[in-house]
Design a protein around this nucleic acid. Sequence first.
RNA 1: AGGACUAUAGCUCAGUUGGUUAGAGCGCUACCUUGACAUGGUAGAGGUCCCCAGUUCGAGCCUGGGUAGUCCUACCA
Length: 922
Amino acid sequence: MDKTFQPADIETRWYKEWEENGYFAPQGGEKAYSIMIPPPNVTGSLHMGHGFQEAIMDALIRYHRMLGDNTLWQVGTDHAGIATQMVVERQLEAQGISRHELGREKFIDKVWEWKEESGGTITRQLRRLGSSLDWSRERFTMDPGLSAAVQEVFIRLHREGLIYRGQRLVNWDPALHTAISDLEVIAEEEQGHLWHFNYPLLGGEGHLTVATTRPETMLGDSAIAVHPEDERYAHLIGRRVQLPLCDRDIPVIADEYVDREFGTGCVKITPAHDFNDYEVGRRHGLPMINIFNDDAAINDSAPQAYRGLDRFEARKRVVADLAALGLLDKVQAHTLKVPRGDRSGVVIEPYLTDQWYVDARKLAQPAIAAVENGDIQFVPKQWENTYFAWMRDIQDWCISRQLWWGHRIPAWYDPEGKIYVGESEAAIRQEHKLGDEVVLRQDEDVLDTWFSSALWTFSTLGWPEETPELAVFHPSSVLVTGFDIIFFWVARMIMMTLHLRQEVPFHTVYVHGLVRDGEGQKMSKSKGNVIDPIDLIDGITLDELVSKRTTGMMQPQLAAKIEKATRRQFPEGIAPYGTDALRFTYYSLASTGRDIKFDIGRIEGYRNFCNKIWNAARYVLMNCEDQDCGLDSTAPVELSLADRWIRGKVQETAAEVAHAVSQYRFDLASQSLYEFVWNEYCDWYLELSKPILWDEEASADAKRGTRQTLIRVLEIWLRLLHPLMPFITEEIWQSAAPLAGKSGATIMLQPYPQRDDGELDENANADIDWLKAVIVGIRNIRGEMNISPGKAIPVVLRKGNDSDRRRLAENSPYLKKLAKLADIAWLPDDTEAPMAATALAGELEILVPIAGLIDKEAEITRLDREIKKLENDLSRLRGKLSNAAFIDKAPADVVASERDKLRAQELSLETLQEQMQRIRSI
RNA sequence: AGGACUAUAGCUCAGUUGGUUAGAGCGCUACCUUGACAUGGUAGAGGUCCCCAGUUCGAGCCUGGGUAGUCCUACCA
């Protein structure tokens, strides 16, 4: 074995081995356990959030697989309608081709080509993370099977009246020329203006002043609204005003929607271009005047002068023209929320079109109930509130998109505009007995990507066929996802699955936090702070990292700043840390209910942990290979104190890990393992094994016992650790397992260690605690007195009780080796103690004689510090115990333990004070 | 406007039903190339648990109020 752990070869080698041997596929077992991967964008690439999410899922999957469950991790990718179409359109644009020139079919061919070309990136990256996905069952949302499921659902819901087509205002993206759902609109505060305009009253006396942030929409105004109880305007209700710039007049209406306090208390009503105005318009039967075309340029419904102008250009013209007419009252600076498309970034326009909708209200009821009654549980629980809040006020879901890439809506229209929904034109003709003379035209639109995602847990298992997989693996066990898609995806999956299958899609939703950069900033391309998890695994040079962060930017002017920040933050680039270290970092940061600030220092620490594991294994193998490790069950074995202790400790660790995983507390699981491996197994047990293995006088039985313990405990904790660090554990396990009497092709399919209480040994724990206390006491004196670690020193023990004597008798070889002692002696109580530095282990005094070793002043300082600390504690304890209320009301065992503590500390203080006097007297 | 979350060592974070002296990693200081490991070892320094009040024998933890920050939802003509 190499002296340092080299992850790269090991990782690729083992992943290939696992995949080729089909270890990722379900293997049977009584209980089923399944997770459906949140399908990443097929042409996307892995980011830190994915890395985190996959790590969590893989740990759960590997854990359950080792528990013997029939475990499926369903893999697949999403066609990501808008995102993918945009990428391909941009590529074509670069070649000077528009998709319209190309035509629908050829364009879709291009997208499929791009999918084939780049679709491997994300799946390669998933493999690099060690994700034990069942690749034999890989699905894609536009596979024939999944597409059939989508069509089936659309037809069914349409027949049930849960999908309908209607004309209403939608969020229109004028750049992408498609409707989008409410969720795809991001409203951000921006600086704008509030323009005040005068609309002259018809009949000549005076005007009404309206305030607006969108002057250009006045071309589509249908009314002026005031509050019905606003006495300022009450007399004008029912009158008409002249709409400036347009050759028409509009009524003054009363509606409670109007806020009297805002602006002038008069609102211009533009029903075709504002969601609130739309409702007002409907209530009052106002005409809906659409003044925009698909690009949000002014159309022919507006006066000649503005036709063809872009909306922002039109705004300037309208303001200028009104000013010229003397109708501009004033302009105020105003902060407003501007709705922008989450993909295109352009301002979204409320726009009147025909679209398809899902009646979400009806579907929401059972979906709310399923969470209320605990059929589905969120972890952490507070997300249930978020879910309820949204579900109880859910709006109908606009599912049609004016795109080409996606599932085409299975609806056809006859020349009269009658709608037919069915699986094909032929089927529809047959069902409705339509002859060839009736021309049918299929709907041009495709479905929102999230429509197919909503079916994911069951469409991937073969639905609408009632397949065996569906029976076994559905509902899935847990959904692991980010809070940002609770509405987009989680809620819709719950609604659709309950409706179509009368069962939940999953029992638990584990909601993890967002992975942010070291400063707590969201990682984004435009901020230039993105870290690719693969770069943490394989490493990257500074120059490559800079170029990765600064090429293909939407805002190239930021490149210089990003380069500077990157060079400052990663002066040496990023070292290759390996997958196991990256994964362990994720786990250690995965406490629930908070975001993750990714600190590069952590991964370095866990890379070091890998190295520690590696070297501990080297030590064990070095001492066990070709040696008698007690495999022969008839050979007598003698277990040392340390052997008995560590055999118990590894069981305690198994229990802690199991508990933590059951609560999805991977931070606690990883911490338990880290502490056990490093602080117990390596720091103490390996050191305690040396006195036995290296002692020529130790018996063969004792050596056999220690070797057996070394290798067996190693083999157990490798399995405990495997779900978190799959590669290093497999690599070492291959060598270690045979020596521990285990056989098997892979650690992956070994049973997960279950706590064995028979191995716990409380006596051994107590003795080891004593041993540690004595050793640490001596080391402390050494460290503080600057006694060279190489120098063997004599130690004298004094006072103490029978168990101290027994422990000394049994453990002096350990003490001599680990504390580097020349000699250790017991001093009878009635003997005068030599001049010495003192440490305490309970009642036991540990004395390191001064002569020639100890600096008197330094020891006085050290004792003084100890005494002060004790005095502080004592005064608090005495105060507590002299409080009658405490004695009366606190539980008896708490009071008793405080009293014990007081006694012990008083004794310690006395001892140290005596010691202080003696030192001072020389 | 409503709601959620967060505030603990220089930094990143744990801290269970309220009960020893509040912990870990990184960083820092001193010493150490000892036969698994310097990606290491030993020892050490470092805390007003955001603030105020309350409940309690006892509060980092519970209650109320406040401050600061992050986020979500809705609305702002």
